[in-house]
C-alpha cells in the first residue's frame, strides 16, 4: 500500500472564514481514488463546525474505505471532536508514526 498523503494544515483558526478556501486546498491535494490521508493539525489552535465539516467532506470524497488519521490535535480541536463524537470517525494519533501504522492497518 502506498504512503498516505500528508497534509500540514497551516490555518491557526480552521473556521467558517477560511473553510471554503481550505476545502479547495485539500480537495486538490487528494486525487480521485486516494484512500489514506494523514492530517497534521499541529498549527491549528481553534476549529469550528464548519472547519470540521471540511474534514468530513474530505473523508467522503475518498469513498467508503477512505481513512483519515489526525496528528497534533490540540485541546480545542480535541474538544470539538469529542463533543461531536467525530473522534470515532477520524483516527486521533499521538505521532506521525502511529498514524502511519493506523492507516496501514
Amino acid at each position: 500500500m502506498s504512503d498516505p498523503i500528508l497534509i500540514h494544515v497551516e490555518h491557526p483558526r480552521l473556521d467558517a472564514a477560511v473553510a471554503p478556501g481550505f476545502k479547495d486546498e485539500v480537495t486538490t491535494r487528494v486525487e480521485q481514488g486516494e484512500r489514506r490521508v494523514l492530517l497534521d493539525l499541529t498549527a491549528v489552535q481553534f476549529m469550528d463546525s464548519t472547519g470540521l465539516g471540511v474534514l468530513v467532506s474530505l473523508l467522503k470524497r475518498m469513498g467508503g474505505d477512505g481513512r483519515i488519521a489526525v496528528v497534533g490535535a490540540g485541546p480545542a480541536v480535541l474538544k470539538l471532536l469529542q463533543l461531536t463524537r467525530l473522534d470515532t470517525l477520524f483516527a486521533i494519533c499521538g505521532s506521525e508514526d502511529e498514524a502511519r501504522d493506523v492507516l496501514r492497518g
Binding site: S49, T50, G53, V54, S57, L80, T84, L89
Partner: peptide
C-alpha cells in the same frame, strides 16, 4: 449523521 458536512452548530 456522522457523515453530514454541516448542521452541528446548534448541538455544539
Amino acid at each position: 449523521d456522522p457523515l453530514a458536512e454541516s448542521g452541528r452548530g446548534m448541538m455544539i
